[in-house]
Write a protein that binds this DNA or RNA. Structure first.
Length: 581
DNA sequence: GCCGTTTTCGGCCCGACTGTTTTCAGTCG
């Protein structure tokens, strides 16, 4: 049983317990366990009891339920709860403005168990008869039902960033003196964003009027003096919060989250006799404010180093901040090269020359041109002869772009059985090879693992491209033993790619961090199919930061000579570990 | 249901906005 299924089950249990009106802390325990499991790199279903109990937020009971689910595929407690409330009621619970109290009331008083039944009752004016629900609430519920499709799902980080920039530009024009900061999951660089949070520092309530009047606003969910929420066309929810300058740091911290990080931080504050909210950090005894103007000051007052937003997920960053052992994260400007891009020779939109000129303009010292190999016929992939001719054209351009070295590479398909799409002689004649899976994603995990291991056994494979094959919001990763593959990559010196395409971001933060423990080195690559897409590396760098990676972990932060020397093909052969390799 | 730099019991983060109310409950983030 995979982590997502386990997390989904705990999430449902939490929802059902809320409907029941159970102890809020018990509910929180299930919810935080779901979140932890969902982001755990290894399959927790395979862990033994001892290892399970070491997972934060998993105690005796939850460990037992995980083992029950992993071994039987079922959870008696979950089924017991589902006997009390129909599973369809959970859809009602997801509606904007409908919480557990309302959903339980609807079910108990009117027998409403589905969104359709709720819609019918609302249209018939039956809801307003219930205690605590009036005509306005009834109308809001009908609206929420209409909008639920739009409300579903999350959005790509890059899209969210573009939208945030647009909204902030609009607000900034109306209020030039106010500082606007995108916060929430966008500031943390989370791969998808559920909504969009913007913080305004030092303005007045008229800012809220400007915000809700933006032409993309479809519906105003809340409109107060310091907080407003709107739904935008396309299903986004956006929130604007206003705080005074003295609270800038506290508010940035508070609204950046994550929720789990904030809870842990406030817990720490309480233990120090302090209380933390979006306005500042104050002493419990006499109410004096000790920090709040800057984030740095706030963390310092709690005895912590400032935590980069990308790390604020309650995954050990507070302990590291307390011990002054946070990593020096790779920075956005530290990439010196890009090792994955396509040209018109296969499915790219621009020529080698155009890509090289754009890379030079970005200040890169080196790039590898890596068009597709022949198995990807759809993309006009190159066979051995074309690959070598193409390589000659790439190399012939060296000297033409000052400061930039072009490497002749290939993105070589990993075939069904782990063989490579081009012969060894051809691969050996190139400067750089990234090997990727583009077909047969549904192989059994064991088969997929062996496929990747076999590909890495080829001495000319320098890197594995988009190692898990997932497409954000569209296609799950193919399943394989990441641990085993990462261990082999670390041993052979094969780099794993952090692919920066906005809907790939593959490896992701959790997997990259786990792979690093095996000594793996990474490449942050654009996989650009046009000159414009070279800039996507910013998202890959953000993933690397979320994975706690420093410059040393990223091969393409090195100058050309050091980069070359670190490539698998130029490293001394690893000590033989037996015939199996 | 979890957890321990006061603790194996008794805690567990905090505030804005809305609607239905006459002082607050529910929802959301």
């Amino acid at each position: 049983m995979d982590n997502r299924t386990l997390a989904g089950c705990f999430e449902q249990i939490a929802d059902l317990l809320e409907l029941k009106g159970e102890n809020v802390f018990k509910i929180r325990a299930y919810r935080s366990a779901a979140e932890t499991i969902g982001a755990w790199a290894d399959p927790v279903g395979a862990l033994d009891d001892l290892a399970l109990r070491a997972v934060p937020g998993i105690g005796k009971d939850l460990a037992a339920k995980i083992r029950e689910l992993a071994s039987t595929g079922r959870c008696a407690y979950h089924e017991e709860l589902l006997a009390e409330f129909p599973v369809t009621l959970l859809e009602v619970l997801k509606l904007q403005g409908v919480g557990p109290k309302t959903a339980a009331l609807l079910f108990r008083a009117l027998g409403i168990a589905t969104v359709d039944a709720l819609a019918a009752a609302a249209r018939a004016g039956q809801l307003r008869e219930l205690k605590g629900i009036g005509p306005k609430k009834e109308a809001l519920i009908l609206k929420a039902i209409d909008e639920r499709r739009l409300d579903q799902g999350r959005h790509l980080l890059a899209e969210t960033a573009t939208l945030a920039a647009e909204l902030i530009a609009h607000l900034q024009q109306q209020a030039p003196a106010v500082t606007f900061v995108p916060v929430g999951s966008l500031r943390r660089g989370s791969e998808t964003c559920g909504d969009l949070d913007i913080l305004a520092v030092g303005g007045d309530a008229t800012l809220m009027d400007t915000f809700v009047a933006h032409p993309r606003v479809e519906r105003v969910l809340a409109h107060g003096d310091t907080k407003s929420s709107v739904r935008l066309q396309g299903g986004y929810q956006a929130d604007l919060r206003l705080v005074p300058p003295a609270s800038r740091g506290a508010a940035m911290q508070y609204f950046t989250g994550s929720k789990a990080h904030n809870i842990a931080l406030r817990d720490r504050a309480l233990r120090l006799g302090l209380t933390l909210n979006e306005y500042g950090l104050t002493r419990l005894d006499d109410g004096t404010t000790v920090a709040g103007e800057t984030e740095e000051g706030l963390y310092e007052a709690l005895g912590l180093a400032w935590v980069p937003p990308e790390l604020r997920e309650d995954r050990g960053e507070l302990e590291a901040a307390a011990g002054q052992s946070l990593p020096a994260l790779v920075s956005f400007g530290s990439l010196r090269g890009d090792l994955h891009m396509h040209t018109t020779a296969s499915d790219g939109r621009d020529t080698i020359e155009a890509m090289a000129a754009a890379a030079q303009a970005r200040g890169y010292a080196y790039i590898a041109i890596t068009d597709h190999s022949k198995a990807l016929a759809m993309a006009n992939g190159l066979d051995e002869r074309r690959a070598l001719e193409h390589a000659a054209r790439v190399r012939a351009l060296n000297g033409r772009y000052e400061g930039l070295t072009l490497l002749a590479g290939i993105e070589c398909d990993i075939l069904e059985d782990g063989r490579l799409d081009l012969d060894d002689e051809c691969l050996a004649a190139l400067d750089f090879v990234v090997a990727s899976v583009h077909s047969r994603f549904n192989q059994e995990p064991r088969q997929m693992t062996d496929r990747l291991l076999r590909a890495m056994a080829c001495p000319w494979v320098d890197a594995i491209g988009h190692p898990t094959g997932r497409l954000l919001l569209r296609r799950d990763a193919y399943t394989f033993a990441l641990d085993e593959v990462a261990a082999a990559a670390g041993r052979h010196g094969v780099a794993l790619e952090i692919n920066s395409q906005v809907d790939r971001l593959d490896l992701n933060d959790v997997h990259a961090r786990a792979a690093r423990t095996h000594g793996v080195r990474f490449l942050v690559s654009s996989d650009a199919h046009s000159t414009a897409a070279l800039g996507n590396v910013q998202w890959g760098v953000q993933v690397a930061r979320r994975a706690w990676l420093d410059d040393d972990a990223i091969l393409n932060t090195r100058p050309l000579d050091a980069f070359r020397a670190a490539l698998r093909r130029h490293r001394p052969a690893p000590v033989s570990r037996g015939a199996s390799e």
